[in-house]
Protein backbone atom coordinates (compact mmCIF):
# COMPACT_ATOMS: atom_id res chain seq x y z
CA UNK A 1 0.00 0.00 0.00
CA UNK A 2 2.79 2.36 0.94
CA UNK A 3 4.67 1.55 -2.24
CA UNK A 4 1.58 2.39 -4.24
CA UNK A 5 1.09 5.81 -2.66
CA UNK A 6 4.79 6.55 -3.07
CA UNK A 7 4.54 5.65 -6.75
CA UNK A 8 1.53 7.91 -7.16
CA UNK A 9 3.41 10.78 -5.54
CA UNK A 10 6.42 10.26 -7.78
CA UNK A 11 4.32 10.12 -10.94
CA UNK A 12 2.34 13.22 -10.03
CA UNK A 13 5.42 15.22 -9.12
CA UNK A 14 7.11 14.13 -12.33
CA UNK A 15 4.08 15.21 -14.36
CA UNK A 16 3.88 18.51 -12.50
CA UNK A 17 7.56 19.29 -13.06
CA UNK A 18 7.17 18.46 -16.74
CA UNK A 19 4.08 20.65 -17.03
CA UNK A 20 5.67 23.52 -15.13
CA UNK A 21 8.71 23.25 -17.39
CA UNK A 22 6.66 23.35 -20.57
CA UNK A 23 4.09 25.90 -19.47
CA UNK A 24 6.06 28.33 -17.34
CA UNK A 25 9.53 28.54 -18.83
CA UNK A 26 9.41 30.78 -21.91
CA UNK A 27 11.34 30.00 -25.07
CA UNK A 28 13.18 32.79 -26.84
CA UNK A 29 10.19 34.23 -28.72
CA UNK A 30 9.75 37.82 -27.55
CA UNK A 31 6.53 38.89 -25.86
CA UNK A 32 4.12 40.28 -28.48
CA UNK A 33 3.83 44.08 -28.63
CA UNK A 34 1.10 44.53 -31.27
CA UNK A 35 -1.66 45.15 -28.77
CA UNK A 36 0.39 47.69 -26.86
CA UNK A 37 1.34 49.57 -30.01
CA UNK A 38 -2.25 49.75 -31.11
CA UNK A 39 -3.53 50.82 -27.72
CA UNK A 40 -0.89 53.52 -27.31
CA UNK A 41 -1.83 55.04 -30.63
CA UNK A 42 -5.64 54.62 -30.56
CA UNK A 43 -6.64 53.77 -27.00
CA UNK A 44 -7.27 57.22 -25.66
CA UNK A 45 -8.76 58.46 -28.92
CA UNK A 46 -11.25 55.58 -29.02
CA UNK A 47 -12.33 55.54 -25.41
CA UNK A 48 -11.20 58.74 -23.70
CA UNK A 49 -9.55 56.73 -20.94
CA UNK A 50 -5.98 57.54 -19.96
CA UNK A 51 -5.82 54.32 -18.00
CA UNK A 52 -5.43 51.78 -20.79
CA UNK A 53 -6.37 48.87 -18.57
CA UNK A 54 -9.72 50.56 -18.04
CA UNK A 55 -9.95 51.17 -21.76
CA UNK A 56 -9.63 47.43 -22.36
CA UNK A 57 -11.94 46.07 -19.72
CA UNK A 58 -14.67 48.66 -20.07
CA UNK A 59 -14.57 49.42 -23.77
CA UNK A 60 -12.85 46.88 -25.98
CA UNK A 61 -13.61 43.88 -23.84
CA UNK A 62 -16.57 45.08 -21.81
CA UNK A 63 -18.34 41.82 -22.51
CA UNK A 64 -15.77 39.98 -20.36
CA UNK A 65 -16.49 42.41 -17.56
CA UNK A 66 -20.19 41.66 -17.86
CA UNK A 67 -19.32 37.98 -17.51
CA UNK A 68 -17.21 38.75 -14.47
CA UNK A 69 -20.07 40.58 -12.71
CA UNK A 70 -22.32 37.63 -13.52
CA UNK A 71 -19.89 35.20 -11.91
CA UNK A 72 -19.88 37.45 -8.86
CA UNK A 73 -23.66 37.60 -8.70
CA UNK A 74 -24.01 33.82 -9.01
CA UNK A 75 -21.37 33.31 -6.33
CA UNK A 76 -23.25 35.66 -4.01
CA UNK A 77 -26.58 33.93 -4.58
CA UNK A 78 -24.96 30.53 -4.07
CA UNK A 79 -23.03 31.53 -0.96
CA UNK A 80 -26.06 33.15 0.65
CA UNK A 81 -28.32 30.19 -0.06
CA UNK A 82 -25.82 27.63 1.22
CA UNK A 83 -25.06 29.65 4.36
CA UNK A 84 -28.76 30.09 4.91
CA UNK A 85 -29.37 26.35 4.75
CA UNK A 86 -26.67 25.84 7.38
CA UNK A 87 -28.51 28.30 9.57
CA UNK A 88 -31.60 26.19 9.28
CA UNK A 89 -29.71 23.09 10.31
CA UNK A 90 -28.30 24.84 13.37
CA UNK A 91 -31.77 25.91 14.38
CA UNK A 92 -32.09 22.48 15.83
CA UNK A 93 -30.79 23.11 19.38
CA UNK A 94 -29.28 19.67 19.84
CA UNK A 95 -26.87 19.89 16.92
CA UNK A 96 -26.45 23.64 16.91
CA UNK A 97 -23.02 25.13 17.17
CA UNK A 98 -22.48 28.83 17.66
CA UNK A 99 -19.85 30.16 15.37
CA UNK A 100 -20.88 33.74 15.51
CA UNK A 101 -19.03 36.94 15.27
CA UNK A 102 -22.30 38.27 16.45
CA UNK A 103 -23.59 41.63 15.39
CA UNK A 104 -26.47 41.64 17.81
CA UNK A 105 -25.92 44.10 20.62
CA UNK A 106 -27.16 41.87 23.43
CA UNK A 107 -24.67 39.18 22.58
CA UNK A 108 -21.75 41.51 22.27
CA UNK A 109 -20.58 41.46 25.88
CA UNK A 110 -20.10 37.74 25.58
CA UNK A 111 -17.80 38.10 22.64
CA UNK A 112 -14.16 38.74 23.31
CA UNK A 113 -13.35 40.19 19.90
CA UNK A 114 -15.92 42.99 20.06
CA UNK A 115 -14.26 45.56 22.26
CA UNK A 116 -15.10 49.24 22.67
CA UNK A 117 -11.77 50.10 21.08
CA UNK A 118 -12.76 48.22 17.93
CA UNK A 119 -16.10 49.96 17.83
CA UNK A 120 -14.70 53.46 18.19
CA UNK A 121 -11.91 52.99 15.67
CA UNK A 122 -13.97 51.28 12.98
CA UNK A 123 -16.82 53.73 13.41
CA UNK A 124 -14.48 56.62 12.66
CA UNK A 125 -12.58 54.95 9.81
CA UNK A 126 -15.72 53.71 8.06
CA UNK A 127 -16.85 56.96 6.39
CA UNK A 128 -13.33 57.80 5.23
CA UNK A 129 -12.90 54.41 3.62
CA UNK A 130 -16.31 54.73 2.01
CA UNK A 131 -15.38 58.09 0.52
CA UNK A 132 -12.09 56.71 -0.74
CA UNK A 133 -14.01 53.83 -2.35
CA UNK A 134 -16.23 56.24 -4.25
CA UNK A 135 -13.15 58.19 -5.34
CA UNK A 136 -11.44 55.07 -6.72
CA UNK A 137 -14.66 54.08 -8.45
CA UNK A 138 -15.20 57.45 -10.10
CA UNK A 139 -11.60 58.04 -11.16
CA UNK A 140 -11.09 54.63 -12.73
CA UNK A 141 -10.63 55.95 -16.25
CA UNK A 142 -7.77 58.35 -15.48
CA UNK A 143 -6.02 56.75 -12.51
CA UNK A 144 -5.40 53.25 -11.19
CA UNK A 145 -8.65 51.79 -9.97
CA UNK A 146 -12.11 51.22 -11.34
CA UNK A 147 -15.40 49.61 -10.53
CA UNK A 148 -14.18 46.38 -8.99
CA UNK A 149 -11.47 47.93 -6.86
CA UNK A 150 -13.74 50.77 -5.77
CA UNK A 151 -16.53 48.33 -5.06
CA UNK A 152 -14.45 46.19 -2.75
CA UNK A 153 -13.25 49.29 -0.90
CA UNK A 154 -16.87 50.42 -0.54
CA UNK A 155 -17.73 46.99 0.81
CA UNK A 156 -14.98 47.22 3.41
CA UNK A 157 -16.21 50.69 4.33
CA UNK A 158 -19.69 49.30 4.88
CA UNK A 159 -18.27 46.48 6.97
CA UNK A 160 -16.35 48.95 9.13
CA UNK A 161 -19.55 50.94 9.56
CA UNK A 162 -21.41 47.85 10.66
CA UNK A 163 -18.69 46.82 13.10
CA UNK A 164 -18.61 50.23 14.68
CA UNK A 165 -22.28 51.04 15.06
CA UNK A 166 -25.00 50.00 17.45
CA UNK A 167 -26.76 47.28 15.69
CA UNK A 168 -29.84 45.22 16.09
CA UNK A 169 -31.77 42.69 14.13
CA UNK A 170 -34.14 45.30 12.69
CA UNK A 171 -31.40 47.43 11.20
CA UNK A 172 -29.73 44.33 9.84
CA UNK A 173 -32.87 43.41 7.96
CA UNK A 174 -33.26 46.92 6.63
CA UNK A 175 -29.62 47.08 5.59
CA UNK A 176 -29.92 43.78 3.76
CA UNK A 177 -32.96 45.02 1.93
CA UNK A 178 -31.34 48.26 0.84
CA UNK A 179 -28.16 46.53 -0.21
CA UNK A 180 -29.90 43.82 -2.20
CA UNK A 181 -32.07 46.39 -3.93
CA UNK A 182 -28.97 48.40 -4.90
CA UNK A 183 -27.29 45.24 -6.13
CA UNK A 184 -30.23 44.11 -8.24
CA UNK A 185 -30.92 47.51 -9.75
CA UNK A 186 -27.26 48.14 -10.58
CA UNK A 187 -27.18 44.78 -12.35
CA UNK A 188 -30.35 45.50 -14.33
CA UNK A 189 -29.08 48.97 -15.23
CA UNK A 190 -25.75 47.57 -16.38
CA UNK A 191 -27.50 45.19 -18.77
CA UNK A 192 -29.90 47.89 -19.93
CA UNK A 193 -27.03 50.30 -20.64
CA UNK A 194 -25.33 47.63 -22.70
CA UNK A 195 -28.54 46.99 -24.65
CA UNK A 196 -29.53 50.63 -25.03
CA UNK A 197 -26.96 51.27 -27.71
CA UNK A 198 -28.70 48.72 -29.95
CA UNK A 199 -31.66 51.09 -30.10
CA UNK A 200 -29.69 54.30 -30.57
CA UNK A 201 -26.74 53.36 -32.74
CA UNK A 202 -27.38 49.74 -33.70
CA UNK A 203 -24.19 48.49 -32.04
CA UNK A 204 -24.22 46.21 -29.04
CA UNK A 205 -22.20 47.38 -26.01
CA UNK A 206 -21.08 50.84 -27.01
CA UNK A 207 -21.78 54.42 -26.00
CA UNK A 208 -25.56 54.82 -26.46
CA UNK A 209 -25.53 58.62 -26.48
CA UNK A 210 -22.73 59.18 -28.94
CA UNK A 211 -25.05 60.91 -31.40
CA UNK A 212 -26.13 63.32 -28.67
CA UNK A 213 -22.52 64.41 -28.21
CA UNK A 214 -21.80 62.56 -24.97
CA UNK A 215 -18.15 61.55 -24.84
CA UNK A 216 -17.12 57.92 -24.47
CA UNK A 217 -15.41 58.89 -21.23
CA UNK A 218 -18.75 59.44 -19.50
CA UNK A 219 -19.95 56.04 -20.64
CA UNK A 220 -16.93 54.47 -18.97
CA UNK A 221 -17.55 56.46 -15.80
CA UNK A 222 -21.17 55.28 -15.77
CA UNK A 223 -20.14 51.64 -16.22
CA UNK A 224 -17.54 51.99 -13.47
CA UNK A 225 -20.13 53.46 -11.11
CA UNK A 226 -22.66 50.71 -11.83
CA UNK A 227 -20.08 47.96 -11.40
CA UNK A 228 -18.80 49.59 -8.23
CA UNK A 229 -22.26 49.79 -6.69
CA UNK A 230 -23.02 46.22 -7.64
CA UNK A 231 -19.76 44.80 -6.35
CA UNK A 232 -19.85 46.89 -3.17
CA UNK A 233 -23.37 45.94 -2.21
CA UNK A 234 -22.90 42.29 -3.24
CA UNK A 235 -19.72 41.73 -1.27
CA UNK A 236 -21.07 43.47 1.82
CA UNK A 237 -24.23 41.33 1.63
CA UNK A 238 -22.07 38.25 1.53
CA UNK A 239 -19.99 39.43 4.50
CA UNK A 240 -23.11 40.25 6.52
CA UNK A 241 -24.57 36.83 5.76
CA UNK A 242 -21.38 35.13 6.93
CA UNK A 243 -20.83 37.28 10.01
CA UNK A 244 -24.30 37.34 11.44
CA UNK A 245 -24.75 33.62 11.58
CA UNK A 246 -26.11 32.89 15.01
CA UNK A 247 -28.34 30.58 16.91
CA UNK A 248 -31.75 32.17 17.12
Amino acid sequence: MKMKTAAVHVIVIFALVLLAGCLFIPDDTPWPTDVRTRLVSDGEKDTGAKNLVSAIYLAYRAFDTLGETIVLIVAIIGTMSVVESVKKISDDPTTAVTYDFSLVKEKRSSHKLRTHLLEVVTGKIGPVVLLFGFYVMGQGHISPGGGFQGGTIIASGIMLFILGNPYSKVTEMRQNKILSTIEASAFVLFILVSLLSILTSGIFFSNPLEAAGVKYEYYIIALNALIGLKVGSGISLMCIAMMSRRRT
Binding site: V35, R36, V53, Y57, D64, V71
Partner: peptide, 15 residues
Protein backbone atom coordinates in the same frame (compact mmCIF):
# COMPACT_ATOMS: atom_id res chain seq x y z
CA UNK B 1 4.74 50.67 -21.20
CA UNK B 2 3.99 47.18 -19.85
CA UNK B 3 1.42 45.17 -21.83
CA UNK B 4 -1.96 46.53 -20.66
CA UNK B 5 -3.86 43.59 -22.14
CA UNK B 6 -2.64 41.00 -19.64
CA UNK B 7 -3.42 43.32 -16.74
CA UNK B 8 -7.00 43.73 -17.89
CA UNK B 9 -7.33 39.96 -18.40
CA UNK B 10 -5.95 39.20 -14.98
CA UNK B 11 -8.36 41.65 -13.36
CA UNK B 12 -11.14 39.40 -14.62
CA UNK B 13 -9.33 36.20 -13.67
CA UNK B 14 -8.72 37.42 -10.10
CA UNK B 15 -12.37 38.33 -9.55
Amino acid sequence: MVDPMVQALMLTAIV
